[in-house]
Design a protein around this nucleic acid. Structure first.
Lengths: 133, 133
DNA sequence: TCCTTGCTTAGATGAACTTCTAATCAGGAT
DNA sequence: ATCCTGATTAGAAGTTCATCTAAGCAAGGA
């Protein structure tokens, strides 16, 4: 882990992540997206196109245990529990997170496959970059 | 360039792209996004969270010349020119594309930096992946 | 100068989305 | 059994968004 100029932490990409990037997801610049592909992908981006859901995703992803209790998530926002629950449902229905109830509490964790697919789609979107390799 | 099981073309990641991935964009799992970071990032994802805009981006990105005339873009959709113009404006205001007028026609091309940032943010969002490296 | 073509802006409409309050469900404790 | 706490569902209100038609702007040709 390194720290960059603006103070944010960064790290290098692992081989395993490269395999995901390299997996079966044609990047945007490869060939035009079909209507059905676009219709399938757009809801995934819509799920993360909200500041609350981005922070929820980030809170869950950066939690040490790999999972986070809803009560901790709710406490991090100035929003009512039903609102947080709504956003978690949107993320879950998009396949970005998974939930599990253990006793009184419900825990959420990241489902990495869909995020990896979205990332791979956007990454090499510049033909110039692809060809100067 | 290879072809995967479902017939879509894929390719490996270049060193230059790795540098972009590795650049100054903390991935989601690194640490929780601040409220202001989330507020800044969400509109970027909102810009691509629409099937028409995803296809527009893909059409522009995959065009041989690196740029595409609006007339070609409009022809690819079953929508009126004002609607296409609206979507192009959304993408341009998000910093994802740039436009240039040459004579009668207006050409759009990809602005790769923002896409690279979004991709880097989503990619290593799984702590499990990051730690099995 | 006037007309034609390409593209964008303005304004309106109907759908979708975010948020809330109130009510409901699930588990655990008294 | 009853109550309490954590979480979700139901329904409503206000806002944002995608799309259209109509109008405007820019550039080139008759």
């Amino acid at each position: 882990m390194r720290v960059c100029l603006d103070g944010r932490q960064i790290r290098t990409v692992s081989k395993q992540e490269l395999q995901i990037i390299d997996a079966c997801c044609a990047p945007l610049a490869c060939e035009p997206l079909s209507e059905s592909e676009a219709a399938e992908l757009a809801p995934l981006f819509k799920a993360v196109a909200d500041p609350v859901r981005l922070r929820l995703l980030s809170l869950i992803a950066s939690h040490e245990d790999g999972e986070t209790c809803v009560c901790d998530l709710t406490a991090a926002f100035d929003l009512t529990p039903p609102t947080i629950s709504h956003h978690l449902k949107v993320l879950r229905q998009a396949g970005l997170i998974e939930s599990e109830r253990r006793g009184t509490w419900v825990y959420y964790r990241i489902a990495p496959a869909v995020l990896a697919r979205m990332s791979a789609l956007l990454m090499p979107a510049s033909r110039a970059l692809a060809e100067t390799a």
